[in-house]
Amino acid sequence: MKKDLPDFLIVGAAKCGTTSLGDYLNTHKDMFICNPKEPKFLTYSFLKDCYRGKGDDFTKKKAVKSLEEYKSLFKKAKPNQLKGESSVDLLYYHDKSIPLIKEIIGDPKIIIMLRNPSKRAFSAYSHLVRDGREDKSYIEALKLEDERRKLDYEFIWSYKNAGYYSDSTKAFLDNFTNVKVIIFEEFVKNQENVVKEVLKFLGTDNQPSNFTELHRNISGKSKSQLLNRILLKDSFVKTIFKKILPNNTRSKIKFLIQKTNTKPIIIEDYERDYLKGVFNDDINELQNILDTDLSIWKQ
């Protein structure tokens, strides 16, 4: 492994608990998660002409665009710390991202988090509604997905297609020596145990103390879009806070504001069940790959 590059990658999937896991790891003395946690450097090289959906320009602006800038994200890590990042588009674009990871980084440890694909799809939809980017109904948005993909929208708009996990998961398992797959539903049941498993996987026996469960990246409908825009967009005040407040403190503040400013999106049963059965073949394939019972995803 190259000393100035990450030792591990949380590669996805989006809306599967990766933010919470990254925050847990970042509180551990042996871990260093870069800021921004999702630099998207490895995918920017082939996505730089994309990002054409509403609000995608902000994502493109924040993406790290050079190897030197990418390396600089890890310079503050202490010599004994394991360095990581969490660009969750790496899983979705596995066919192009894997060769780049191997070429630039080598053989880092890989963490994949997977969730019931139907629920993941609605969570991604709710995320974009919260940010004022999605203005269609859930069913309309799903029907528009293929068109939006052709128009090179950011991957987060691929509500359905980002839920086909078997090919991408197998590709990472086939190409890297150490890959850990985490099922989101198990993570939610016992976050502390899963975090301990991840720490052991990454190579430290030091376990977290005073463990407090985290729930990050709340999705839903914003009560105030103005407040949400202030929270998300860069500003002079946010720049000052970044300099004086630790990452975890800023994450807690952001979470509390989002929690107060977000309300659930209410949908009808037929909307919630719109994708029921769509993923069954892929789930069956993934069960075989992981030798894990995923029947809970079919309910």
Results as ranks from 00 to 15, higher is better:
residue 174 D to G: 09
residue 136 K to M: 15
residue 163 G to N: 06
residue 101 I to W: 03
residue 104 I to A: 07
residue 147 E to G: 04
residue 143 K to H: 12
residue 111 I to T: 04
residue 125 Y to N: 00
residue 202 L to P: 04
residue 153 Y to S: 08
residue 187 F to T: 07
residue 182 I to S: 07
residue 198 V to D: 05
residue 165 Y to H: 08
residue 135 D to P: 06
residue 99 P to F: 11
residue 162 A to N: 14
residue 162 A to R: 14
residue 125 Y to I: 00
residue 110 I to C: 00
residue 123 S to P: 01
residue 210 N to Y: 11
residue 124 A to T: 11
residue 108 P to G: 06
residue 105 I to N: 04
residue 107 D to F: 00
residue 153 Y to T: 10
residue 196 K to G: 08
residue 168 S to V: 01
residue 103 E to N: 14
residue 136 K to L: 15
residue 100 L to S: 11
residue 133 R to Y: 13
residue 191 Q to N: 08
residue 206 N to L: 14
residue 189 K to Y: 09
residue 122 F to T: 05
residue 100 L to E: 14
residue 208 P to W: 07
residue 197 E to Q: 13
residue 204 T to V: 06
residue 142 L to S: 04
residue 187 F to D: 08
residue 199 L to G: 02
residue 169 T to A: 13
residue 145 E to N: 09
residue 166 S to M: 08
residue 192 E to I: 03
residue 138 Y to L: 10
residue 136 K to C: 13
residue 146 D to M: 13
residue 164 Y to Q: 09
residue 183 I to V: 15
residue 98 I to L: 02
residue 118 S to L: 12
residue 131 D to I: 08
residue 171 A to H: 02
residue 139 I to P: 02
residue 105 I to W: 05
residue 187 F to R: 06
residue 105 I to A: 03
residue 184 F to I: 06
residue 151 L to H: 13
residue 159 Y to R: 03
residue 137 S to L: 08
residue 189 K to E: 14
residue 176 F to A: 10
residue 102 K to T: 04
residue 179 V to I: 08
residue 103 E to L: 12
residue 160 K to Y: 11
residue 193 N to Q: 14
residue 109 K to H: 01
residue 92 Y to E: 12
residue 141 A to Q: 02
residue 100 L to C: 10
residue 165 Y to C: 09
residue 89 D to H: 08
residue 100 L to G: 07
residue 136 K to G: 11
residue 111 I to A: 03
residue 153 Y to H: 12
residue 103 E to F: 11
residue 162 A to V: 12
residue 126 S to F: 00
residue 182 I to D: 05
residue 200 K to P: 11
residue 158 S to Q: 15
residue 112 I to V: 12
residue 143 K to Q: 14
residue 101 I to M: 06
residue 174 D to H: 10
residue 190 N to H: 03
residue 161 N to C: 02
residue 111 I to V: 11
residue 121 A to V: 00
residue 143 K to W: 09
residue 163 G to Q: 03
residue 200 K to A: 15
residue 179 V to E: 06
residue 207 Q to I: 14
residue 135 D to Y: 13
residue 117 P to E: 01
residue 185 E to Q: 04
residue 113 M to K: 03
residue 161 N to D: 15
residue 127 H to V: 02
residue 115 R to T: 01
residue 93 Y to R: 04
residue 133 R to Q: 15
residue 209 S to W: 10
residue 153 Y to R: 05
residue 201 F to E: 07
residue 119 K to R: 12
residue 150 K to V: 06
residue 185 E to W: 03
residue 177 T to Q: 13
residue 184 F to A: 03
residue 176 F to M: 09
residue 123 S to T: 01
residue 159 Y to A: 01
residue 161 N to V: 03
residue 207 Q to C: 11
residue 101 I to V: 12
residue 179 V to L: 07
residue 114 L to P: 00
residue 185 E to M: 05
residue 190 N to T: 04
residue 161 N to A: 12
residue 174 D to Y: 09
residue 110 I to L: 00
residue 173 L to M: 14
